[in-house]
């Protein structure tokens, strides 16, 4: 009687929290309040990141000025993985609690994630040509990132192919969760296999392997891109939820 299974207790408590917070009206008022802050963070971080990355940061000892592609390539690659993780969490929430907002977050994040994946691939190949000597090579990191791009495409295609909204949401959510296996593969590919691609520069738990004068603009750019994602997601969600309720 007294001891409920911990998992079930957590689930039901989460539900109480979610139904209150994740309802579209609450979300809208919250998003409206947050949007200017995101814009401010985006503008400030982008300004510092661009000036720092293009002017203040010294040239690399090995790659010279060419390493400045780092400041767009790394944030794009980071966001491509982060957005997919957000989508996977949203998909799980949507499937378990049948939350309309969670499905909307999943669906509206997909095009953004696809753009970032595409940009990570293109900036990476523009960086690879002068440094490695080739635009493209089928190494584990590049190939798994390309698979991620196809996953995003597949997610968008599946969602638009199914006419029934509920079915589309559920089927896509399952595809998103299945595709999530690719995320750790992308992240650890450079450690698990021999690749042409170098290891990760930004590390969460260990000190980053980059000089501080080069690191801060990189962090600023990453923050700016995250803020961009938040802004774009809120704008897209607002449209999607409004047009949906307007249609009924």
């Amino acid at each position: 009687m007294f001891k409920k299974p911990l998992l079930q207790k957590m689930l039901s408590q989460t539900q109480v929290f979610l139904t209150r917070v994740m309802s579209p009206p609450y979300f809208f008022s919250f998003a409206e309040k947050c949007l200017p802050w995101f814009v401010a963070v985006f503008v400030a971080a982008l300004a510092y990141g661009l000036i720092g990355g293009l002017f203040l940061a010294p040239a690399d000892y090995l790659q010279g000025e060419g390493f400045r592609i780092l400041y767009v390539h790394v944030p794009c690659a980071f966001l491509s993985l982060m957005i997919y993780s957000v989508m996977a969490v949203a998909a799980a929430f949507g499937l378990i609690w049948r939350l309309k907002l969670a499905f909307a977050v999943m669906r509206q994040s997909a095009p953004l994630g696809m753009v970032f994946t595409f940009l990570a691939l293109v900036t990476g190949s523009l960086w690879g040509k002068p440094m490695w000597g080739t635009y493209w090579i089928w190494d584990a990191r590049l190939t798994s990132e390309l698979i991620l791009l196809f996953l995003y495409l597949g997610i968008l295609a599946l969602h638009s192919a199914l006419p029934n909204r509920r079915l589309a949401d559920h089927a896509t959510a399952i595809l998103v969760l299945i595709g999530f296996v690719d995320i750790p593969i992308i992240h650890y590919s450079v450690n698990w296999w021999n690749t042409l691609h170098q290891g990760s520069t930004l590390r969460l738990l260990a000190p980053s392997l980059i000089a501080p004068s080069m690191l801060y603009p990189l962090l600023a750019m990453t923050v700016a891109f995250c803020a961009y994602y938040a802004i774009a997601l809120i704008l897209r969600l607002r449209c999607a939820l409004l047009s949906e309720s307007g249609a009924r």
Binding site: D60, Q63, M131, T201, L209, A211
Partner: peptide
């Protein structure tokens, strides 16, 4: 050519 993840001036 392969390079590593250590960038420095």
């Amino acid at each position: 050519a392969k390079h590593d993840e250590n960038y420095m001036p």
